[in-house]
Computed example of a mutant assay.
Amino acid sequence: MTEIHEGQRVAVLADSQNLYHSAQSVYSRNVDYSKMLEKAVMGRQLTRAIAYVIRADSPDEESFFEALRDIGFETKIKEIKTFGDGSKKADWDVGISLDAVTLADHVDTLILCTGDADFSRLCSHLRHEGVRVEVVAFEESAAADLKAAADSFIDMSKREDTFLL
Rank of each mutant, 00 (worst) to 15 (best):
H106C: 10
V136G: 02
V94I: 15
G130I: 12
I71F: 02
K39C: 03
V26K: 14
S58G: 12
A137V: 11
K158P: 03
K35V: 08
L122Q: 00
A11F: 10
N30M: 06
D145S: 15
R44C: 09
M1H: 13
V10K: 00
S120T: 09
L126E: 04
N30F: 03
D118Y: 02
A56F: 13
E3I: 02
V12Y: 06
E74D: 04
T109Y: 08
K158E: 13
W92G: 05
K89S: 13
E38I: 04
S152A: 11
S157T: 13
S152Q: 15
I50A: 00
V53Y: 02
E134K: 14
S34C: 10
S124D: 07
W92M: 13
G86R: 08
L164H: 00
F153M: 06
D60Q: 11
F163Q: 03
L146S: 12
K158F: 05
A144T: 15
A142L: 12
W92Q: 01
Q17G: 10
D155E: 09
L98G: 04
G43M: 07
P59K: 14
D93G: 10
V107T: 03
V131W: 05
F83N: 10
P59C: 15
S87D: 07
D70P: 00
I71S: 04
L112M: 06
D161L: 06
E140L: 12
A137M: 11
F83Q: 04
C113V: 15
E79A: 14
D155G: 09
V135E: 11
I4Q: 10
M42D: 12
Y20G: 04
A144K: 15
G115R: 02
D85G: 11
F83S: 07
R159T: 06
D57K: 12
D145L: 15
H125N: 02
H5I: 08
V10D: 01
S25D: 08
G95D: 12
E6R: 14
R44P: 02
A56K: 15
C113N: 01
Y33V: 00
L126W: 00
F64G: 05
E79C: 07
T162W: 15
E139Y: 15
